[in-house]
Structure formats: structure tokens, C-alpha cells
Amino acid sequence: MNGIRRILARFPLHLAVIVICLIWLTPTVGLLVSSFRHKDAVFATGWWTVFRIPMDFAQFRLDNYIQVLTAQGMGRAFLNSLTIAIPSTIIPITIAAFAGYAFAWMEFPGRQVLFVIVVGLLVVPLQMTLIPLLRLYNRVGLAGTFLGIWLAHTGYGLPFAVYLLRNFFGGLPKDLFEAAYLDGASPLTAFTRLALPLSVPSLASLGIFQFLWVWNDLLVALIYLGGTEKVAPLTLKLSAMVQSLGQDWHLLTAAAFVSMAVPMLVFFTLQRYFVRGILAGSVKG
């Protein structure tokens, strides 16, 4: 009896969640359906028309995927994207973890001012930095190199990463660190042995954010790296499949899902970290 009442009480909530999910997913479903349809069908009728005869599998084809995946230089583009995205995720998170810890737990004059400056950088549009930074890169020979784009993504990602991690570290119980210091831990030990292991969930979510941003980035790569075959990431390669007046845009439906595959993989591998209790069992009391 009690159980049924609880289910009934929660019903409106569940209904709302389901409806929101459906609305949210509709465009993606449309894209997915379109990606399996033939070019002429895509142009002729809307994607929802497939549901009139959903069992007619002849209307679904793999043409778009085959064309996207077998395009020349696709493997290279995948590799380039990974070469860009992995260091561009690891470097800023590493730096931000150190910085965030220092801002949260180390006492030094000007701490607040420095932190405010870093957070203030969040509102600087990255487009403003393109020309001066590219000019600097040309001077020192970093334009068109992977190192250059790692540093650029690091810079663009740092303000948010520092902000997020400082707030997370700041939320850890003070007792924990006092206990560590009493036991003779140095700040570095407290950081590596205490703060880092506890912050795996926030590091993981930050990792996903940063990875997605770098993976989906087109502009930064286009400016600092250029779109030549040797260095072009997946986004550039895929956007180059469309012709100058937008012909062949139907290929982008399949391309979207191809480029989505890797971030999905990253998300599902890191997802279990979110589920884990953040501070489960760290302090008794």
C-alpha cells in the first residue's frame, strides 16, 4: 500500500522528466534517423515520415556512413583529433588541480586577488586572443604545431578548470587537512594523497568537459593549426566534406554520429566516477 502511494506521488515528477527527455532528444533522434536515410529521401520528406512504416527496413541505408568513413584521410583525421584532444585535456587539468588546491588551502597574500583575476578571465572571449596569440606563435615558431594548439587549449580551458577545482577543494572538510598536517604531511603530500583521490569525480567531469570542448572545436584548430591534411582534426575534415554552396550536407548527419562516437566512449568510461559518493567514508562522524 505504502509502495503504491509512493509511486503515485512520484508519478508527476517522472512524467515531467520523461517529457523533458523526449523533447530534448527529438532533434538528435531526427538526426540519427536522417543519417540512415538515402540522400534523395532526406531531401524529399521529413525524417518523421519513416515512422509511417517503421518496419520497412529498405528505407534505411548505410550509404552516408560508408561515404564518411571511407573518405580519404579519415584515419589520419581521427588520429590528429586524439593527438590534439588528449594532451589538451590532461595539461590544463593537471595545472588547474595544483592551482585550485593552492587557492583553496594555502595561505599567501594576494590569494583572493589572484583568484579573482583568474576567474575574471572566464569572460574574455577567446576570439579576441586569436590575432595577438597567433602573431606570438609565428614569432616563436609554434604556429601549425601540435604543441601550439595544446598550449592554446590549455590557456582557454584553465580559468574554468581552476575555478571549478578551487571550489571543489574548498568544499572538502578542514578537519581532514588538519589531521594530515598533525601527522606531519607536507602540503604536497596532503595534495597528492588526500585532495586528489577525493576529487576524482570532479576531475573526471572536468575531463569530460574539456575533452568535449577540444574534440568539438573547429575555430581554434583552424586558426592555430590550419586545415592541411597532415594536421587537420576530425571537425575540419568533416566540415570540408560539404561543398562551397552547402551541397552534400546530408553527409553531415552521419558525420555527426561518427564524431560523437569518441566523446560518448569517454563519457561512459568516466561515468562511473560520478555515481560514486564524493566523500564516502573519508571522515567519521
Partner: peptide, 10 residues
Amino acid sequence: RTVEVTVPVP
């Protein structure tokens, strides 16, 4: 990888 690919392309 850094070492491998820092050949200036343009």
C-alpha cells in the same frame, strides 16, 4: 608525440 610532429607545416 611532440617530438614526432613539431615539423612546421606551412
